[in-house]
């Protein structure tokens, strides 16, 4: 990492801290900074303190973890596929995770013999179902696209399309089989929300994502060599096949932990790494840690928008990220048509 990279990362961290403070203070109830700073003082017993401690802090921390995880997963998968348009949604990680969760919402109650409402409280099952679904989908894609010792990227992308279609069909079947209460849970989950954030949920997501996040940051140098080409990386001492498999598992874990609780949140994994490459170049020792910070910042701010713009009601966060993300994506495509690299 160069000195410029360190300065940029420090700038991003500072911006995230400012956004974090703003997200904790602002909302349907405005909490002054002094109250926020005194939140861990047990002597104080105000409504503001209760809101910050029980609702906003876990919510902003969840936004940080999920935004950071999705962006880091996007940046890492883009390196493995050597394609700047790769995204967890592209190779079936997200849709596989969605099948896992939807299947759990609809059929889990029958399996566990409890009601849908009880299911929603059994927090661990959501990320586990999402991780399982994501991993199975990705495994299918990986197996199909393996040619000899290496992975053939065009085949992998095609297999991803097929797996996404299959996941769509399976989700359709689950919706068809669901009752009214399940359908409502499904719809809200599909649109994405950070509304379910509690300290318990935050701790689960933290425990599931911290390992893969740290590992991917350490692999940044090797992922740069993969960008040079799989053969080239192999000749520079990287065990390409092993690295590819591990990155996919790490990303399935990150996406599973996030998608399991917050539903499908698109474009963060695609847009955030792009912005970072535009600003500071494509080397992963900048892009991967930067993705965590900018992803955290983006999702925290998107969540702030989603809960303030029509307060006291909330827009689903997936809608907010898609509203801002898709025009940016179109802009990138237009830019690449004019000869600039993506």
């Amino acid at each position: 990492m160069t000195r410029v990279d360190s300065h940029r990362l420090a700038g991003l961290a500072a911006a995230w801290i400012v956004a974090f403070a703003a997200c904790v203070m602002l909302g349907a109830l405005r909490v002054p900074l002094t109250d926020v700073l005194g939140v861990f003082d047990v002597e104080v017993n105000s409504l503001g303190r209760a809101v910050v401690l029980n609702i906003r802090l876990p919510r902003v921390l969840l936004a940080t973890l999920v935004g950071g995880s999705l962006a880091v997963a996007g940046a890492s998968l883009q390196s493995v596929f050597r394609n700047p348009l790769a995204d967890p949604a592209l190779i079936g990680v997200s849709s596989g995770a969605a099948v896992g969760v939807v299947g759990w919402i609809v059929f889990g109650s029958a399996v566990a013999g409890v009601t849908g409402a009880t299911l929603l409280q059994s927090d661990w099952f959501f990320p586990v179902a999402a991780f399982g679904g994501g991993l199975i989908a990705t495994q299918i894609v990986m197996t199909l696209s393996r040619q000899g010792p290496l992975i053939d990227v065009p085949t992998m992308l095609l297999a991803g399309i097929a797996v996404n279609a299959l996941a769509g069909a399976l989700i359709g079947v689950a919706i068809f089989a669901s009752d009214e209460e399940q359908l409502r849970t499904l719809t809200m989950w599909t649109l994405g929300s950070l509304g379910g954030a509690t300290w318990h949920v935050v701790s689960i997501v933290f425990l599931l994502s911290i390992g893969p996040l740290a590992w991917l940051v350490v692999q940044a140098r090797k992922l740069d060599l993969i960008l040079l080409g799989e053969r080239e990386a192999g000749h520079l001492g990287v065990d390409v096949d092993q690295l590819n498999r591990r990155v996919v598992v790490a990303c399935a874990l990150l996406v599973g932990a996030s998608v399991g609780f917050t539903g499908l949140i698109g474009f963060v994994g695609l847009v955030v790494p792009h912005l970072l490459r535009l600003v500071g170049g494509p080397h992963n020792r900048w892009v991967i840690p930067g993705s965590f910070l900018l992803g955290a910042l983006t999702l925290s701010v998107s969540d702030l928008v989603s809960r303030t713009v029509v307060a006291p009601a909330e827009l689903p966060i997936g809608v907010v990220t898609a509203l801002f993300g898709s025009p940016f994506f179109l802009y990138l495509i237009r830019r690449s048509k004019h000869g600039a690299s993506l």
């Binding site: 700047p84 040079l228 080409g229 080239e232 690299s341 993506l342």
Partner: peptide
């Protein structure tokens, strides 16, 4: 051992 392949594609702007 170092290997120079016939051609190399690099889709990121290094």
């Amino acid at each position: 051992r170092a290997v120079l392949p016939q051609e190399s594609a690099l889709s990121f702007p290094f």
